[in-house]
Every structure is written in structure tokens, then in C-alpha cells.
């Protein structure tokens, strides 16, 4: 009996130790980044463009990266949404009459879900070269949309799947077409979770560096058209962290800090926003 009790106690200690180790590293990460970032960040850092030679400790801020990252993430999320929402609807039993097709599409998306973003980046680069373009905002948008698509479809598929069958049947019984059922019943009922899905994909997109490394390029300016190269926060961190010049490193810490704040804000928003959106939901 004592052995079993001891075992119980030790396992509990081990579990708590593992949990505290993980949560502890999470807080250590937050602390390190916030401290470093807070020292580096200033108003002029956020609102000024770099004046060239950032790697060698040039003047200026990281506005190019902040604007670039927002452009990339907003654009890619919208692009991805255009394909993800219809695809997720198609996966519902109302549409995927031929079950084999839905199963195939779903497994394909499951497989794509974890494909490393560097693969999308490399492939996007191959396409750019084939088209004779150079790295630009549009290339980055497309590669990033690819990264976000499986994440978004999967979350949406789950959100739509939770809508009660009885609700759809009630709509069909009132002679709603499928389109009307989807638009007036299913989408409305699933809205909070759908918005969460979009925000989570946005959070993933804004932090992704590997996909835009080849496809979006890097620049000190804000792009004027879809065919200009564009900077991004993760790449700023990646390029400037290893410079021996303190001014450049400060910029990397500031970029990492801004990125972290943006991502955490989006994640928190994704959790909070479900409440006001749930007002018209039938439970």
C-alpha cells in the first residue's frame, strides 16, 4: 500500500514539475523579450523608416517591417479566407454528397496542415523564377496564404461541424435552399468560431518568416505596388540579430518585441471576441 501511495505522490510531483518547467520557460521567454525589447524600443523606432545600412548600425526605425508585416498578413489572410470558407463549407455533409471526395480533400488538408512553411517559400520562389518576377509583395502574399490556408480550413471545418443538424433540418423543412441555409443559419450560428479561426490564421501568418524569406524580399521602404519587395518583422529579427553592431541588434529586439505584442494581442482578441459575436446564437 505504501508503495502505491508513494508512486502516486511521485508521479504527481513529476507532473507538476513538467508543467512548471514549461510554463516557467514561457514566462522566461516573455521576460527576456520584454526586457530586451523595452530597452530597445522608442517612439522613433516605431514611426521611422531605416535610413540604409541597418546591418551596420545605420539610423532609423523599423516602420518598414511593421507596415510590411501588416500588409503581408492582412493580404494573405484575406486571400486565404476567399478559398478557405468555401472549401470548409464544401466539406460539410450538406454539400460533399460524394463522400469520397470530401474525405480526400480533408486528408489532403490534414497533410498540408503541417507542411513546413519553408517548402511553400521555396516553391513560391520556383514559381517566381518561372514567371520571371523578382521577390515582391504579391509573391509573399501567395506563399503566406498557402501557409494559412490549411490552418484556416481545419478550424472552420470544426466550427461548421458543431452547428446542430436539427437546425439545418428545420431550415430545409421550411424549403430553404442550401445556399439560404448556409447563409442565414449555419454561417450565423458558427460566426464566433469562424472569426476565431481567421484571427488564429492571421496570428500564424504574421509571425511566419520562412515562407516570405524567398518570396517577399526585403527593403528599407514601404512598397508602392504589389510588385515591390516588402520587409517584414520576423525577417528583420532574423537578419539583424547577428549583427555585431549594437544599433542593429536593438532593432532586432524591438522588432521581436513588436511581433510578440502583435501576436499575443491577436490571440487574446481571438479568445475575447467570441462573446460579443455570440449574441445571436441559438443554444
Amino acid at each position: 500500500m505504501t508503495w502505491r501511495r508513494r508512486q502516486e505522490r511521485w508521479m504527481k510531483v513529476a507532473m507538476m514539475a513538467a508543467t512548471s518547467l514549461l510554463i516557467g520557460s514561457f514566462f522566461a521567454l516573455l521576460t527576456v523579450l520584454v526586457v530586451k525589447g523595452w530597452q530597445a524600443i522608442s517612439w522613433s523606432m516605431v514611426v521611422k523608416l531605416p535610413t540604409g545600412g541597418a546591418y551596420f548600425g545605420g539610423e532609423g526605425g523599423i516602420l518598414n517591417a511593421i507596415v510590411g508585416s501588416l500588409l503581408l498578413a492582412v493580404g494573405a489572410t484575406s486571400l486565404s479566407l476567399l478559398v478557405a470558407l468555401p472549401t470548409a463549407l464544401l466539406l460539410q455533409p450538406d454539400y460533399a454528397g460524394r463522400k469520397k471526395f470530401a474525405q480526400f480533400l480533408r486528408s489532403l488538408l490534414d497533410g498540408l496542415w503541417g507542411v513546413p512553411s519553408i517548402v511553400y517559400g521555396a516553391c513560391g520562389y520556383a514559381l517566381l523564377v518561372a514567371l520571371g518576377w523578382r521577390a515582391c509583395l504579391l509573391g509573399g502574399l501567395i506563399a503566406l496564404a498557402f501557409v494559412e490556408l490549411p490552418i484556416m480550413v481545419r478550424a472552420m471545418d470544426e466550427a461548421l461541424g458543431i452547428v446542430p443538424k436539427a437546425m439545418k433540418e428545420a431550415a430545409y423543412a421550411l424549403a430553404f435552399t442550401r445556399y439560404e441555409t448556409m447563409r442565414h443559419v449555419v454561417l450565423r450560428q458558427a460566426l464566433p468560431s469562424l472569426v476565431t479561426a481567421v484571427l488564429l490564421a492571421f496570428g500564424r501568418g504574421i509571425g511566419d518568416a520562412a515562407s516570405v524569406l524567398f518570396t517577399a524580399g526585403y527593403t528599407d521602404n514601404i512598397p508602392r505596388s504589389l510588385f515591390d519587395p516588402v520587409a517584414s518583422l520576423p525577417l528583420t529579427v532574423f537578419f539583424l540579430l547577428n549583427t555585431p553592431f549594437e544599433e542593429g541588434q536593438r532593432r532586432a529586439y524591438a522588432a521581436a518585441f513588436v511581433l510578440l505584442v502583435l501576436v499575443l494581442a491577436v490571440n487574446v482578441l481571438a479568445r475575447v471576441i467570441t462573446k460579443p459575436l455570440s449574441r445571436y446564437i441559438v443554444r
Binding site: 510554463i23 523579450l33 521581436a256 510578440l260
Partner: peptide, 21 residues
């Protein structure tokens, strides 16, 4: 929620933490 937040942190941020600590 903390574990879920951790999953959303971009990889470069983990990289910075790795380099510094």
C-alpha cells in the same frame, strides 16, 4: 490558455530566446 498562447508564438521569437538564453 497559456499553453495555447505558447503555441501561437512565432518561431523567430523562440529563436531570439534561444540565442539569448
Amino acid at each position: 490558455p497559456m499553453v495555447d498562447l505558447m503555441a501561437g508564438i512565432p518561431s523567430v521569437v523562440y529563436g531570439v530566446f534561444g540565442v539569448l538564453v
